[in-house]
């Protein structure tokens, strides 16, 4: 085991995948000499050459569209979109081409693309640099959507995503890039299935579902809640499409209460889908309606306001209090 930052773990995952399969190529803006604006591809162009780590012109639709062509030719492109808010010019290629080619060709053409997107807020960035667009992609049939929360998962899940023959949109929680964790570099891509959720902390009173950057916040909330005698089970969703409902369902059947948190807006977000699906599956086990603790239905705000938009420990615990029928911010509205 080695202690690596999240960013270095991603770098190691890319390196391992490139060593294992000569058809793996990286494409993106500034990923070569600079190593990417977050240095995730640092040193890879030097070691693998300009034909495998390709600095592209500044055109996101062009990057994804040419990656589709590379995949037609038998390559396994790993695309870096520099920031979440820059993916939209490529949205047409992703939704109309990447997601649908396997279906359109009756399975004859596969699109083993991995589209890496640093996402989420909390780092004081300017406009278009802090977005959480995952629901758009999870809503799109044909795409797998995942988000690791820690260095070990970053390392393993990225290799799994690259090896996957379906297109995978890989959301990296950028505010965790510098956090360290133990990584089993010798384990390759061995680990839980790419599509599976993992219980990070056992608890008995309420199930708290999070993914990406908020998993750490959720774990901190669970620790804080202990002082109040509340036992929170924290599930790291990891895969947003498909969602591992079996794991969430089993947990909610034990706890009877569900809170889902994400940075993305509430309306039609992952929280809405999980709340609906778990209500269908666990209706008679639920002691309270599922609770969502999410970003508001607003454009991502300027950075001096972002702490009011992002769910933090206190807002998550307020949501837990609601799920537990304890005094909370909405108590005055009841009765």
């Amino acid at each position: 085991m080695s202690a690596l930052t999240f960013g270095k773990a991603l770098n190691a995952g890319l390196r391992h995948s490139m060593e294992a399969d000569s058809k793996v190529v990286l494409m993106g803006e500034d990923i070569g000499k600079l190593g990417g604006v977050f240095r995730i591809t640092d040193g890879l162009q030097k070691d693998f050459g300009q034909h495998r780590v390709i600095d592209t012109p500044l055109a996101e639709s062009g990057i994804v569209g040419t990656a589709v062509g590379m995949a037609y030719r038998g390559f396994r492109p790993v695309v870096e979109i520099q920031f979440d808010g820059f993916v939209y010019p490529a949205f047409d290629q992703i939704v109309s081409q990447v997601a649908k080619l396997h279906y359109r060709t009756h399975g004859q053409v596969s699109m083993p693309l991995t589209i890496r997107i640093p996402f989420g807020g909390g780092i004081g960035s300017p406009e278009h640099h802090s977005e959480s667009p995952e629901a758009y992609f999870a809503h799109t049939a044909g795409l797998r959507v995942v988000s690791p929360s820690n260095p070990q998962d970053a390392y393993v899940m990225l290799q799994q995503a690259i090896a996957c023959n379906d297109p995978v949109v890989f959301f990296e929680p950028k505010r965790r890039y510098h956090e360290r964790g133990e990584v089993d570099l010798d384990g390759g891509m061995a680990g839980p299935d790419l599509g599976s959720a993992v219980i990070r902390r056992r608890g008995t009173d309420v199930t708290l579902v999070a993914y990406g950057a908020l998993v750490k916040t959720a774990l901190d909330a669970a620790t804080a809640a202990e002082d109040d005698g509340i036992s929170i089970e924290v599930i790291d969703l990891r895969s947003l499409s498909p969602v591992d409902y079996a794991t969430v369902e089993a947990s909610v059947k034990r706890t009877g209460r569900l809170v889902v948190t994400h940075e993305a807006a509430q309306t039609l977000g992952l929280g809405a889908e999980i709340a609906a699906s778990i209500t269908e599956r666990c209706f008679y086990h639920l002691e309270h309606a599922p609770v969502r603790v999410t970003g508001f239905d607003i454009p991502y705000p300027y950075s001096k306001l972002e702490m009011h938009h992002l769910p933090d420990l206190d807002r998550i615990l307020d949501g837990v209090d609601r799920a537990m029928d304890r005094p909370n911010s909405l108590s005055s509205l009841e009765g």
Partner: peptide
């Protein structure tokens, strides 16, 4: 929808 979120957040801040 947003008005409701605003109202709830005001209550939250009030705590």
């Amino acid at each position: 929808t947003l008005d409701r979120q605003r109202e709830h957040y005001a209550l939250y801040q009030q705590q």
